[in-house]
Design a protein around this nucleic acid. Structure first.
Lengths: 210, 210
DNA sequence: CTAAAATGTTACCGGTCGGTAACATTGGGG
DNA sequence: CCCCAATGTTACCGACCGGTAACATTTTAG
């Protein structure tokens, strides 16, 4: 350990020393390691080291590992919620455009994703305890997301908005699972195509088939 | 601990003493606990106790916990593979009927499922280590399954069989994820509806819309 | 019945992990 | 310059877990 500046720490340290606040660094390192190694597969000590700090400091910012997990999840949820706001602002009163844009963004994320599927989905799989603080955060977010999709489907003029919303949910979650299962990172393209077909079917135009 | 016959052991013991072979009992108990508590959330000792035996006997049948996991996964995969054979035998040269039956069976399973999603999917999430013996088993199975679906889609006369196959995969995986995320156990009904729509769209009949 | 095979019991090992205490060090602002 | 706050260091604790050894007990088969 003569020079312990590992490559993956370059992202965390700024050019001139460590400028990002400790708490954020810990959250970032935790996120990266949770995704790569699994939540239960990484220890707090390793997280602290990856964040270029130590366990004590970590525990000065987070009550426990479970709370760290919950905070990380809260951050991701907030980010996703923000992206929904962006979409809504960018496509006011245009549910079709919004849905298309949404599918395209999702496809882009899927393309950039390596091996492991959705972080939130994996977290649910890794934290079966119903009383875990992170579970409610995830489930509430998923519930809100489904409600939003449902409202969008109503606005978009689907004959059966409930069916359409559930279909969208299945497609969204399923695309992530497929990446993890078969490594199909290009599946986002098909997601986009299907969403386009669904929207085209909503209009009274010539209805393309699968 | 005067009488330590717990309720959930009734399934494992036969009416007249324990008649199921030890190895199978262990596999069953492991499966149940892996699903409920998570693979990493349960210890071998607890598994042995649930199987109405002890750790030593468990280790006489399985080299390690990882091998036990792998064996459990192999069993589930074999079971699923068997169900595919059943389907194929039941619907020879009738891809449409096969797909419909398949979606209906899946829906029934989803309805019976509580809280946690697909065991195989969760296992992938819980075992990020690419060298874990269970991973290859799962991924190979998923790859075979996708190939089967692809072939079916070709036989079923979809214009773009690749797209249709990926759509089916997304629906299948997504339905399981949705159960875990939002607890929508009734989503199988929508899966059936969508599959029916897709198949109807294949034919030159009047094309219903979403 | 008896010998051998299968199963149970207990105790233990080494390692890891989450979490804490006590103390040393650093660094920035008055 | 000095003090206080933030951070680092070290050592430690108790709990759990995967896995093994040695020995006792039960079951099965001939």
């Amino acid at each position: 350990m003569t020079t312990d500046i590992h490559d993956h720490e370059v992202n965390i340290r700024e050019n001139s020393g460590s400028r990002i606040p400790v708490r954020e660094r810990i959250l970032m390192a935790a996120g990266e390691l949770f995704c790569k190694q699994g939540i239960r597969g990484i220890g707090v000590e390793a997280i602290a080291e990856a964040a270029d700090t130590n366990k004590m400091t970590l525990y000065r910012y987070f009550e426990s590992k479970d709370e760290l997990i919950a905070e990380w999840v809260r951050g991701m949820v907030a980010q996703k919620e923000e992206q929904w706001k962006d979409l809504k602002a960018k496509h006011p009163d245009d549910p079709h455009g919004l849905l298309k844009d949404w599918s395209q963004r999702t496809a882009a994320k899927l393309r950039a994703m390596e091996e492991r599927g959705s972080a939130l989905g994996n977290a649910l799989a890794e934290l079966p305890d119903p009383s875990h603080p992170a579970r409610r955060v995830i489930q509430d977010h998923k519930a809100r997301e489904h409600k939003r999709i449902m409202r969008l489907c109503k606005e978009a003029g689907f004959q059966d908005p409930g069916l359409a919303a559930n279909l969208f949910s299945m497609l969204l979650e399923g695309a992530h699972s497929c990446v993890q299962c078969v490594g199909m990172r290009q599946i986002g393209e098909d997601l986009v195509k299907v969403v386009d077909l669904m929207i085209a079917n909503t209009r009274n135009e010539r209805r393309p088939r699968l």
